[in-house]
């Protein structure tokens, strides 16, 4: 019973949806303000979701109906499950086991694959190009993201997120060693969430909507919700691995700190969106493979050396 409540309400689906949509509002508001615009009111993402759910669902004739309808649900499920392993109100997540950090990372990869499959099975030209771009971008940011997120795990000698946060709350100053990794993973997370400057898979001025071109109505609402929740979960992952201070001070304080950290990460995303133009896919691949991966390697090496020194 408790498990069901956890999955559906807190920190499961309901909480993530509400908080995810609120973060989306924050991002849009900050983005607008940076452009000297007014921006949407707080209920905009909620209203958008309700409106989309109420609209007709149009499926292209040639599309594969099973895949087409399944992918949004698939994406949503994956991100909602990932949160169960992330410590939100303390150093202990709802469920944890050794290696759950890898599981979380893979659960976060599933939405991207779902976008690709959804776009591909839409059979429209624009959707297919968007799908291929999504996958191409995946090749770019996966390696740096994994490496930079796993570097603190090397230092903490634990492959479980709860174990990592426990370690760092006991040795708070060691977080500073992971600074490079933090920056890299922030940039890689931008790419995963397909936010500017990495929003080429959804470049409206080129391909009119990318993977989501043919989606409408309820399925589009789910896809968008999946993206919003992915933002929250990604932010939660980063803050639990790189910014785990305050987690040991009790559940309420820990939870509030979690909310604050997520909001800060969202703010950083909005600033990046406002300040930078969109990069082409070949430029993204260049940037990730030639710059980010070496930097992530450096971080891993640094952590290995420090681990030896501490012993």
């Amino acid at each position: 019973m408790a498990a069901l409540l956890n999955m559906l309400v807190f920190p499961g689906f309901l909480f993530l949806s509400v908080f995810g949509m609120y973060c989306s509002f924050l991002e849009r508001k900050l983005y607008a303000r940076l452009q000297s615009r007014i921006g949407p009111p707080w209920f905009q993402p909620y209203a958008d979701f309700v409106k989309l759910v109420a609209k007709e669902n149009i499926m292209p004739e040639d599309a594969n109906p099973v895949m087409f309808s399944l992918m949004p649900v698939f994406a949503l499920t994956a991100v909602t499950t990932a949160v169960l392993y992330i410590p939100i109100w303390g150093t202990q997540a709802l469920f944890s086991f050794t290696g759950d950090i890898i599981v979380v990372l893979y659960l976060l990869t599933l939405p991207t694959v779902a976008f690709f499959i959804g776009g591909w099975y839409s059979t429209s030209l624009y959707a297919r190009i968007g799908a291929v771009r999504t996958l191409g971008q995946l090749f770019a940011y996966e390696v740096p993201l994994f490496m930079s997120v796993l570097a603190p795990a090397i230092l903490a000698e634990s492959w479980s997120l709860s174990g990592i946060s426990l370690y760092y709350s006991q040795h708070p100053w060691y977080c500073l060693f992971n600074a490079i990794g933090f920056v890299i993973s922030l940039v890689a997370m931008l790419a995963k969430l397909e936010k500017a400057p990495f929003d080429i898979p959804e470049a409206e001025t080129e391909i009119g909507g990318g993977c989501f071109t043919e989606y409408s109505g309820r399925l589009l609402a789910f896809f968008k919700l999946a993206l919003m929740i992915e933002m929250v979960v990604g932010g939660a992952l980063l803050s639990s691995v790189f910014l785990p201070f305050g987690l040991a001070s009790g559940p309420v304080v820990g939870f509030i700190l979690f909310l604050v950290k997520s909001v800060i990460v969202v703010g950083l995303f909005a600033v990046a969106h406002a300040l930078l133009a969109r990069l082409r896919i070949d430029q993204i691949l260049d940037f990730c493979w030639k710059l980010m991966i070496p930097a992530a390697l450096v971080q891993v090496v640094v952590n290995l050396i420090i681990k030896m020194v501490i012993r």
């Binding site: 940076l34 452009q35 000297s36 615009r37 500017a196 400057p197 929003d199 080429i200 470049a203 001025t205 406002a274 300040l275 930078l276 133009a277 969109r278």
Partner: peptide, 16 residues
């Protein structure tokens, strides 16, 4: 031009 390269901030500023 800003909008075409995905840089909406430039669009908003110049149009203002």
């Amino acid at each position: 031009a800003g909008h075409e390269i995905g840089f909406d901030t430039l669009l908003m500023y110049t149009w203002k």
